Simulated assay, not measured.
Amino acid sequence: MLPFSKEQFLAVFATYNLSIWPAQIVAYVVGLGLVVLLLWPSTRSGRLIAAGLALMWLWTGVAYHGAFFSTINTAAFGFGGLFVTESALLAYFGVVRSDLRFAPPVDALGWLGATFVAYSAILYPLLGMWSGHAYPEMPMFGITPCPVALFSFGMLLLTTSRVSVWLLIVPLVWSLIGGSAAFALSIVQDWFLLFSGIIVVPLILLRDRRGTSHGTV
């Protein structure tokens, strides 16, 4: 049983969204910028995309989990620590070491990644509104946990390089935690999250084990 009600959960989103405005717009601008970097890659695209993803995880861990969600669930401090850890891992592997490279979708895994990206940014909020969770009582792209995890899964599927297993652990863990809570709270747009990790992580690991990264033949 969850230590809070659905009404309390949605009220946190309402308070959070109203308090951080216009961060929602900034998040979409950042997300659009990452997609542009993906479609028209350069020598710095990998680092910039990793930095953008790291920023989303850091913001969500500190601002959402630490400052707001913790008011109704003390476990949020632990969740926030996981998100900050993922941010640090993305910064290390993607920015410092420059191990992540991305490319537009050209194969099945790439198009699956593009589907995740589109779902997190476009279909996710529309499904939320359809199910009765209108703004501000709704998770928003780039600044709340479940959309950030879904977007990250999509971008990692669009890599043309091997993905460190360390980068997959936190998103997988959160897909199980957040997805399970979504079913308990009837947050329809998050139901997909529960299955996302157990679908995406094995696909990436199998691809990398075979040595056939997205975009290669």
Rank of each mutant, 00 (worst) to 15 (best):
76 A>S: 01
35 V>W: 13
70 S>F: 07
150 L>Q: 04
67 A>G: 00
177 I>H: 11
107 D>L: 12
93 F>S: 02
114 A>F: 15
181 A>K: 12
144 T>L: 03
99 D>W: 00
15 T>C: 08
63 A>W: 07
98 S>A: 13
58 L>R: 01
143 I>R: 13
73 N>F: 11
141 F>C: 13
204 I>T: 07
101 R>E: 11
66 G>Q: 05
115 T>H: 08
200 V>M: 06
92 Y>F: 15
93 F>K: 06
92 Y>A: 14
49 I>V: 03
102 F>K: 12
163 V>I: 10
195 F>C: 02
66 G>A: 04
81 G>S: 11
169 I>N: 06
180 S>N: 09
190 D>I: 08
147 P>K: 03
143 I>E: 04
112 L>E: 13
11 A>H: 04
8 Q>E: 14
69 F>H: 15
66 G>C: 00
17 N>Q: 00
160 T>L: 07
7 E>Y: 03
143 I>Q: 12
111 W>T: 04
25 I>N: 06
175 S>V: 09
74 T>V: 12
45 S>N: 06
92 Y>I: 11
146 C>R: 10
4 F>G: 05
197 G>P: 04
175 S>L: 11
43 T>M: 05
76 A>M: 00
11 A>N: 14
187 I>W: 05
67 A>I: 12
45 S>C: 04
96 V>P: 07
149 A>L: 10
39 L>G: 02
47 R>N: 08
214 H>D: 00
129 M>P: 04
191 W>S: 00
192 F>Y: 06
87 S>H: 10
78 G>T: 11
184 A>Q: 06
209 R>A: 02
66 G>E: 00
3 P>K: 01
120 S>Y: 01
5 S>D: 06
187 I>Q: 14
170 V>N: 10
23 A>R: 05
81 G>R: 12
165 V>Y: 14
104 P>I: 05
88 A>N: 03
208 D>I: 08
20 I>M: 09
148 V>F: 07
209 R>N: 07
32 L>Q: 05
3 P>F: 00
14 A>D: 01
163 V>Q: 12
196 S>T: 07
4 F>N: 01
88 A>V: 14
78 G>V: 06
170 V>G: 06
5 S>E: 08
85 T>Y: 08
114 A>I: 10
94 G>I: 04
29 V>W: 09
102 F>W: 07
211 G>D: 00
109 L>G: 10
179 G>W: 03
206 L>W: 14
37 L>T: 03
126 L>M: 15
45 S>E: 05
46 G>D: 03
138 M>N: 14
39 L>V: 13
114 A>L: 15
66 G>F: 03
139 P>E: 13
165 V>D: 09
166 W>Y: 15
76 A>D: 01
117 V>D: 10
22 P>I: 11
137 E>P: 03
108 A>P: 08
213 S>R: 11
168 L>H: 14
24 Q>Y: 03
113 G>R: 01
23 A>Y: 04
59 W>H: 12
125 P>K: 12
31 G>Q: 04
166 W>A: 15
165 V>S: 15
158 L>Q: 15
32 L>S: 09
184 A>D: 02
63 A>I: 13
142 G>I: 07
73 N>I: 01
92 Y>K: 12
